[in-house]
Design a protein around this nucleic acid. Structure first.
Lengths: 210, 210
DNA sequence: CCCGGTATCCCCCAATTGAGGTATTGAAAG
DNA sequence: CTTTCAATACCTCAATTGGGGGATACCGGG
């Protein structure tokens, strides 16, 4: 299978940059269109060349590779960014993915692994270790409390209270409006949360408002 | 390296269930503590056994494996759930991960691949194809871009926090997600409430969700 | 160089909320 | 008649939230 990939390198060490450039030049179908040694230069140059993939050192002399990634993704969102780092599985990697990188390779990787990661990126993958993958999946999970296929049936009173909840009333205000005791409102709320499988009024309101 | 893993199977086909049970029984260190053929039974049985890993068919006779996963993760969050599906790379898989699964295997996988996926899960990984990994990473990323209707003149950070608010996160969770201090989140919230002229998170969310 | 805005972190304190109970009443269902 | 369920009220305890300060750091424009 043949593939044509244009690449950019952002890496402050001239020797590592050279090694990468050579590796790319020696790989059929791969072309390095741009090599930068600072984040500032990357932000100037890369939008001009719009490479398919950027290999981005996570530690740069001026701004961090993470910051650079975030800025680049705003300008050229279609360019995929592969982080290049010495340490695996730390917060930097995680934050880089958050900033818009779609994978990373370790500096100690073999040339074959590097090419494989680039190929994976180009084909729509996201090269990363399993530990980081798990972190990403977990973080992603919390972001989606979306369900609601079968809500258990709320009673009439519970629906009434949920409606007031989603109009922004506090418990005390709901109690006054319904001429019932504050604690009664709280009891109803407990039941509502149970039935909707949520654990806060905000989540209940979100669910109620679709 | 030796490993001891307790497993549960949720799968309506008796033959597939049997095959899996046998595979597990034949693998040193693996024990199947529970096998269910419906989502309802899984919700009753699995919390009792609290297995390390659940192999969950995505298509069940009563509720969906996705719904079942979401409910289970609320009851026994430490149990890892591995989806078991015929089709790769479709919305079901993606939604299962959203619901709290941490990976999946295809029904056509070899026994070795299945054991490998379970081992990966147990060791903190998230077995999935590269296409799905990319989707997850991208979804995860979208926490960063600040797009939204121009509510007052909220800053980018404030909008970001308001977005998380209206996804149901508590302050502590927002702090973790953004890698900032709990108090910083609270400070941003004060400013948000001021600008939106509201007095509680619920009111802010209601306003944000129109 | 100072100033305003943004983002960050810290302190305190009062109020609210969430989660665990228990208990009574009336109505509906068996 | 007994059981169940909905609605009501009360209690305690821990956690979260809201509101009031203040402080530091960075960055950009005048």
């Amino acid at each position: 299978m043949s593939m044509f990939v244009t690449l950019a390198i952002v890496e402050d060490s001239a020797s590592i940059r050279g090694t990468l450039e050579k590796l790319i030049a020696d790989t059929p179908g791969f072309t390095c269109v741009c090599a930068c040694d600072t984040g500032a230069e990357a932000l100037r140059q890369i939008p001009k060349f719009m490479p398919d993939v950027v290999i981005m050192d996570i530690r740069l002399p001026d701004i961090s590779g993470i910051e650079c990634t975030a800025r680049l993704k705003e300008i050229v969102p279609q360019t995929q960014i592969l982080m290049f780092t010495v340490h695996e599985n730390n917060d930097h990697v995680f934050r880089a993915l958050e900033a818009g990188a779609c994978g990373y390779i370790l500096k100690r990787s073999t040339p074959a692994e590097i090419i494989e990661a680039i190929t994976d990126i180009k084909q729509g993958g996201a090269p990363m270790s399993s530990e980081v993958a798990r972190k990403v999946v977990q973080s992603f999970r919390k972001a989606a409390p979306a369900k609601s296929p079968e809500n258990e049936q709320l009673t009439r009173r519970e629906e009434e209270i949920l409606t007031l909840l989603s109009q922004g009333y506090a418990n005390k205000e709901i109690a006054e409006k319904l001429f019932i005791h504050y604690d009664t409102v709280r009891t109803h709320l407990k039941h509502i949360y149970e039935k909707l499988h949520v654990r806060s009024r905000t989540e209940a309101v979100i669910k109620f408002l679709h």
